[in-house]
Amino acid sequence: MPFNLSLSEREAAGLKRSLPVIDRVSGRQLWANGKGYLNFAGNDYLGFSQAPQLRVAAEAAAREFGVGAVASPLVVGHQAIHRTLESELADWLGLEAVLLFSSGFSANQAVIKALLGKGHWLWQDRLNHASLQEAGALSPARMQRFAHNDMAALAAKIKPEAGLIVSEGVFSMDGDQGDWQGLAQVAEQSRNWLMIDDAHGLGVLGKQGKGTLSEQGVAAEKVQITMGTFGKALGVSGAFIGGSRELIEYLHNHARSYVYSTHLPPPQTAAILAAVRLVQKADDQRDQLCERVQQFRQGVAGLPFELLPSATAIQPLIVGDEHRTLRLAAQLRESGCWVGAIRPPTVPKGSARLRITLSAAHTREDVQRLVGVLHRSLPR
């Protein structure tokens, strides 16, 4: 069968993916096959997945509402707790309205497919997430990708009043931020809409954790569409699209993955709501995360591989060769540190990497241990 050949080729090239079975995971630790590891591969940036406030909220909602929403939102799945979450999200982020989705992937796909037709253009940063790239490929709109964070390249491709520009707040594999002052300027000058995927910036960056736009001083009204997720800094799962009331009402009618999917379970929704309230007061956790990032970057100075210039929780160490990346990740795991080995096609060819993620839940001693293991594992 053709797929067997494809899998054997991937394995030979060091690109085959395997599914680990994790017994239990938290912001700073995980357990697999009965052994404990320091977790430097997840996205629980503030350690909220283990917050007691979220557990209590989820348990109370399960007792009151049950464990499932029982229907899609437009039937009977949209309950009062969903409306409360939408309202508090909108107030926190300065949005007129919000729509909830089961995942960031489905939210990105839904909005691009619902908004763009044959006569539209879609401009995407070359390093945008796979959900955005795939949505663009499946959309009838004409898609063009521009060089990463290159506003001159975007301005050279742009057409006036023709469609949508999409970029990320924090890029999930490189850890750097999109140029949102530049993007807003290009969008305003060309009179095109602008969308931010702030999955990895929400909760971590900006005043009260409002995200990348707040961090960079870009007014929310300059970006017509905001996507954020609940599975990173907020510690739960799910996502939202935010924007004008008119946009959200349009998506109520045209976003197929919203219209035809069972709504978020009430316990999950209650946990997200608790996280939204908690994250706005989490300055201590954000400060601690910044300290861990600075400690890590100082600690790995002098290693033979390139550390990308990221000031966020995502710290990519470029190895290059796929097989070598897998070997290094295995060495780290043997030493008790679980780190992601990221290879093409997730990242460009030749840029296989250890994607190291830090959390406010990590202690100074945790990061010291990781740094020590890296120095012992990597050749000088």
Rank of each mutant, 00 (worst) to 15 (best):
F3E: 12
A12S: 11
G14T: 00
S18A: 14
L19S: 13
D23H: 05
V25T: 07
A32G: 07
D44V: 04
G47A: 05
A71H: 09
L74W: 11
L93A: 05
E96F: 11
L100N: 04
A107W: 05
V111N: 02
H129P: 00
L138D: 14
R142C: 07
R145K: 13
A147K: 15
A155P: 02
I158Q: 01
G163R: 07
G163K: 03
F171C: 07
M173T: 13
D176F: 09
D179K: 10
Q181H: 08
L183V: 03
Q185S: 13
V186Y: 03
I196F: 04
D197T: 13
H200K: 14
L205D: 04
K207S: 12
L213R: 01
K232L: 12
G235V: 02
I248W: 06
Y250C: 11
H254W: 11
Y258I: 08
V259N: 03
A271W: 02
L273Q: 02
A275D: 03
A275L: 05
R277H: 13
V279C: 13
K281R: 15
Q285D: 07
R286V: 00
L289W: 03
L289C: 04
R292Q: 15
Q294L: 15
Q298E: 11
F305W: 13
Q315C: 09
V319A: 03
D321M: 09
D321T: 07
D321A: 15
E322Q: 15
L326F: 10
A330K: 15
Q331C: 13
S335G: 14
G340P: 01
L354I: 08
G372V: 05
H375E: 08
R380W: 08
